[in-house]
């Protein structure tokens, strides 16, 4: 009963197995190739595209979505979705600004904002775990409510005054030559990426996403873990909100509008399947983020009508989903 060797002899079986590995690489390799192609193309078309200044502008243009995409990746792998991030972002910016207005010290204000955001994540988890509301509906409801709350407490106006000194570092300061949000994103993506791949606790997300019932039978506390995931997503959205406020020294209700869709697009282009949980990597998401950053920046730089922007993104999104499906069908055939 040598199943390992049996496969080596049987080319009918080995070929699809190998191609599964190959195609897993293809999704990422195509993205890497596409990103490189765009970089080179843009460097030729626009001379100063590849300048440090523009690279910073390029990544800063999508950095807040990028931070939220890390959490979204985990949510989607677990078989869920979190639409509320786009409301948590402006809400957190406004809340932290209000704490400053009330003369709270920077650290306390930030910690309190995080606690409130985590509460929103817990609320999402509660609706999905206990009330059994589908995450799409639950987080849609949260998105509307929280956006409304932000409008209500700010009276629809920007909160600008009284940002303490030092706070703006979070949006504008430099660490190792990198603007702080970019630096933070790099750290976060490495930490979450490594944990997801190698840490027992984070690995649970794949079991849950693939089959929550059997994950439960294997001793995984599915509900508790989902709560963690939703809280993580909300906390990252809150991070994006605080950084946005620090960057612009202003908290506005207009932040993050439709950003949930941009975030989901980046995650899906990165190869995380929204149809069936259990697949996806942070590496893929990072590639998706880089792609989105280049596209948004390229249209501005090349002075192309921005109406074409979403056409390109839509087409690539379709292509990415198509690749994921193709990969899945290949896998189905061997079963």
């Amino acid at each position: 009963m040598d199943y390992a060797n049996e496969k080596k002899e049987d080319s009918f079986l080995t070929r699809p197995v190998k191609s599964v590995f190959r195609i897993l690489g293809i999704q990422n390799s195509v993205l890497i190739g596409l990103n490189l192609f765009l970089f080179i193309l843009m460097s030729i078309v626009v001379p100063y595209f590849f300048s440090p200044a523009n690279i910073e502008v390029l990544f800063m243009g999508f950095i807040f979505e990028a931070i939220m995409a890390l959490g979204m990746t985990l949510v989607i792998i677990a078989g869920g979705i979190d639409l509320s991030v786009s409301a948590v972002l402006p809400f957190s910016a406004i809340v932290v600004a209000f704490f400053f207005k009330a003369n709270f010290p920077v650290i306390i204000a930030i910690v309190l904002t995080y606690i409130i955001a985590a509460g929103i994540g817990l609320f999402n988890a509660w609706m999905s775990n206990t009330l059994r509301v589908h995450p799409f509906i639950a987080t849609l409801a949260t998105m509307l409510t929280v956006r409304g709350l932000a409008l209500a407490i700010s009276n629809g106006e920007n909160v600008t005054s009284d940002f303490p000194k030092g706070f703006s570092f979070l949006g504008q300061g430099k660490v190792l030559g990198l603007t702080f949000p970019i630096f933070l994103f790099i750290i976060l993506s490495i930490v979450i990426g490594v944990l997801l791949k190698h840490h027992r606790f984070f690995q649970q997300v794949y079991f849950i996403g693939d089959n929550p019932k059997s994950a439960k039978l294997s001793g995984i506390r599915v509900e508790a873990f989902m709560s963690f995931i939703f809280v993580l997503s909300a906390v990252l959205a809150c991070t994006a909100g605080i950084l946005t406020a620090a960057r612009f020294e202003n908290a506005s209700n207009s932040y993050g509008i439709n950003s949930e869709l941009r975030v989901i697009t980046a995650v899906v282009i990165g190869g995380t399947s929204i149809v069936k949980g259990g697949t996806g990597t942070i590496f893929g998401t990072v590639l998706g983020i880089i792609f989105m950053s280049i596209i948004y920046n390229a249209f501005v730089m090349a002075g192309i009508n921005p109406y074409y922007e979403t056409i390109v993104i839509g087409t690539i999104l379709l292509g990415a989903v198509f690749m994921v499906e193709m990969f899945k069908n290949k896998q189905m055939k061997i079963k």
């Binding site: 840490h199 027992r200 690995q203 794949y206 996403g209 693939d210 089959n211 896998q331």
Partner: peptide, 29 residues
């Protein structure tokens, strides 16, 4: 169970030791 319940995107070993993987003190597999 009749309906098999392995996570299809994880390796055989990960599925067998699901949630009981050998880890170091920090929880890394």
């Amino acid at each position: 169970h009749q309906e098999l319940s392995l996570a299809s995107n994880l390796s055989v070993a990960q599925n067998i030791f699901c949630h009981r993987e050998v880890t170091n003190a920090l929880g890394f597999i």
